[in-house]
Each structure stands twice: as C-alpha cells, then as structure tokens.
Design a protein around this nucleic acid. Structure first.
Lengths: 237, 237
DNA sequence: TCAGCTATGTATAATAA
DNA sequence: TTTATTATACATAGCTG
C-alpha cells in the first residue's frame, strides 16, 4: 500500500498476507498505545491472529477485561434508548442475557475438553494444526456425547494396527518432531480411552446450581476448526 | 506529531486532546478495518471514549462479541501454559466461569430494575442526578428485597396524602414534564405500589433454569452512578 | 465547536539480504 | 523463513474559516 496505490482487498499470497498482518498489527497496536497515552483513556484491542497463539496484552489483562465489560454494558444501554415498552424490553434483556450465559458456559465446556485433550495428548512443541484437530474432536464430544464412541469404533476399524495408525498422519501437522510424528485422531482416541477423568468431562455437569443447558441450541458454525488456525493476538510492541 | 516532532505524552489542553482523539480514533478504526480486509481476519476494537456515549460497532456487534469471546479464550489458554494438573486447571476454569456468569446475571438484574424505575418515574429531561438516585434505590431493593417496604412505610408516613400519591405518573414512559416537578422518593415509591409488574422484578426470578444466585456476593462498587460518564465507543468511520 | 487544509512525520509494500 | 532498507502513500498537528 505504498509504492503501488492501495489495493484494499484480501491478499491472496500467504506469505505476503502474513507479513502485512504482522506489520500492520504492530502499527495498529502502536497507534492504540499512542491514543491511550495522548488522550489519557482506556483502550483495548483484540485481534484474532491466525499466526500467533500466545496472547500478549495491552494495556493489561485487567484493562482489557474492563473495557470488555464496559462495552457489553453500553450495548445494553444503547438498546434501551429505543425502548417503548418497559416490560417487553426487560424480558428481552433477560432472554438475551440468559442466552449469552448459556453460550458462555457451553463454550467453556468446549474449551475444557479441548484443553484436556490437548494437554493429555500433545507435547509442548506441536501447537498449530494439532490444536485445530483437537478442537474438532472436542466439539463432537461436547455436542453429541456419543460421537466419541462412534469415532473410536470407526478409527479402530480403519486403523486396527497401532503401527498403521502411527503412520496415518491424517490431519497432519507439518513439522512434527520425531516422537510425535503420529499425532492423529487415533492416538487421540486411545488417550481418551485410557483416561477416565477425561470421560467424566463428557457427562453433563451438575447443573442444579448452574445454567440449564437443556434448551441449548445446536453448536453455532463457529470458526473453530475450519479456516481457523488458532486464536487471538493481543499485542503491544 | 507532524510539524512538531512527536511529543508522546498526555495532551493537557482539553480541546486539542479531544480533537486528537477524534482524528486518531478514526484513523485507528480505519486501520482496523483495513487489517481485517487485507488479511481476512476478524478484528474488534473497543475504545472507551469520554466524548461519545453511543456505541458504534465495527465490524459488527457479532464480530465484536466473537472477538471478545476469543480473547477470553486466549487468556485462559495462556494460563494453561503453566498448568501442571489437568483436572485442577479445569475445575478452576469452571469456577471462574460460573462466577462470571453469576456476576453477569446479577448485573443484568440491577440494570433491569434501574431501567424500570427510571422509565417509570422520570421524564427524558432529568437523567443526570435522578438516575443516580434511582440507582441507589434499585440497589437497595435488589439487595434486600425488603427495604422497599420499609421505605414505603417511612415515606408514606412523611407524606400520607393520597392526592399527592395520585399525581404520580404510573406507567410513565417518556417525557411528562409538568407532572414530574416533584420527582422524589415518594413519587418513586408510589409508582412502585401501583405497578405490580415492577414488584415482580423484585422477586427472585425463576432460577431453576438459570444461574443460582443464592451465594451471590454483595453488590460490587460498580460505577453505576458516580463519576461514571457513560461508556464505550465502538466506532467505524 | 466543527470541518477543511497542508507540511511533515509515520507506516508500510516491495525489495533485498 | 525473518530482518533491514527504501520509496511512497498515508495520517495527522497545527492552522484557518
């Protein structure tokens, strides 16, 4: 966007896109910090980065959380502006809030499972694609509660020999080191079977004192796996 | 930061600061949108603006919410880095999430009550101080569930005339200027008595299918009235 | 206050190492 | 790949109306 006149469109070339992303992200965060400094206000920025897994935070985790809380507040307040009927409005708000809560809880459980699987099965060095794979698995488990068994059967069937399984490498992480060359679904499933405490997570938790998840709508088409690499990049240069 | 070399520090002059804020905020949001377009990623930005009350959203409310969710995700992910014990970590996460949920619900109810009282009692023109007052009242009601009656008694005692009571606008939405010359606690309480639907809000809601609010900690010192301007500015030029 | 307007400082696309 | 180096496009501080 300098020598050539701007071409404000998606950059097809992967490398170029990544380079641009990094540069612009840094620039953006610098601007953010400047704005905060110059005007003495709280600012937070969240960028979902396909290239970076670890979040860096600016100005601080707390600041970010506060900003988020404020933002939520305001969205509600804003709605109220056009409120005509008190009760209706309030009811709507309640419904919305409850939906949000459910969603949050649901997402949380997903994360738990993904976490556990990830931790249980994968070494420190293999973040990238593996996380995506585990996400997919986590979703299924969380959603159906039975798909896990199907998956186990299916995978066992298609890879009865543990050696074969080892060489399968389906979803494939690129630079997998020696020991983890065989990070695939089969391995994941085996680990699951051997870890009862993981299975416990699949059961619905005690929800008497929590949100009722009964009527939870089906999983949203959330970009958990798909083009989705891993999430977020909260950065300060 | 152009003709003079940058002076990256708080701008003392009010007007200049505001001008800079506006310009830079616009520039920032432009960059944000560009980043999103060029790299095909989701981006959200939240700026708490002292100058703007109404939130504008970019790229969209949904996008913002998603980004926020991701961010939360990542903060947890980060924590997990140092996690040693899977189960322990997960339990902690669950606890945290549930606390968050409770807080959210609680805040929501507060807002409901404040809203209702505000709408019921106050014309459009009287925001400022009145809101603060009503907030206080709402808090009390929400907290004790009985203070309302005490308050009613007390106030009735000090103003027993029914005519006075009759002048209290019942459903009272928008602006009813003349009638509201006497916007005080008494009016407020009368309105409450005449509006069963409001009283309903004071009762704990059906919590079988919601978060259990039993163990909710006392109200946080949230800036509901106080120096609180109004929040947030999610902007796209 | 709010918009232009420039002169200038910055950010960054393309390129090279 | 990442990092460093430009040449340019862009953002914006200080003005002005």
């Amino acid at each position: 966007m300098t020598r050539k006149k701007a071409a404000l469109a998606y950059i097809a070339n992967d490398a170029a896109r990544k380079a641009t992303f990094k540069k612009r992200k840094n620039g953006l965060m610098k601007k953010v910090s400047e704005l905060s400094t110059l005007c003495g206000i709280e600012v937070g920025a969240i960028v979902y980065s396909p290239y970076q897994a670890e979040p860096e935070v600016w100005p601080s985790m707390l600041g970010a959380r506060r900003a988020i809380a404020r933002f939520k507040n305001m969205s509600e307040m804003d709605q109220s502006k056009r409120m005509v009927n008190q009760q209706e409005f309030i009811r709507q708000r309640i419904v919305k809030a409850e939906e949000q809560l459910k969603k949050q809880l649901r997402e949380n459980r997903e994360r738990e499972i993904v976490q556990v699987m990830y931790r249980a099965l994968v070494g420190e060095g293999l973040q990238g694609l593996t996380i995506v794979d585990l996400n997919d698995l986590g979703w299924m488990l969380d959603n159906t509660g039975k798909e896990i068994e199907e998956r186990i059967k299916k995978l066992k069937k298609s890879a009865p020999s543990s050696e074969q399984a080892a060489s399968a490498e389906p979803q494939a992480d690129k630079a997998a080191p020696e020991n983890h060359a065989a990070l695939n679904d089969f391995v994941a499933v085996e680990a699951v079977e051997n870890q009862p405490w993981y299975m416990d997570l699949l059961k619905p938790r005690n929800e008497g004192d929590a949100v009722n998840l009964d009527r939870i709508d089906p999983m949203p088409s959330y970009p958990y796996g798909n083009p989705t690499p891993s999430w977020s990049d909260f950065y300060f240069p």
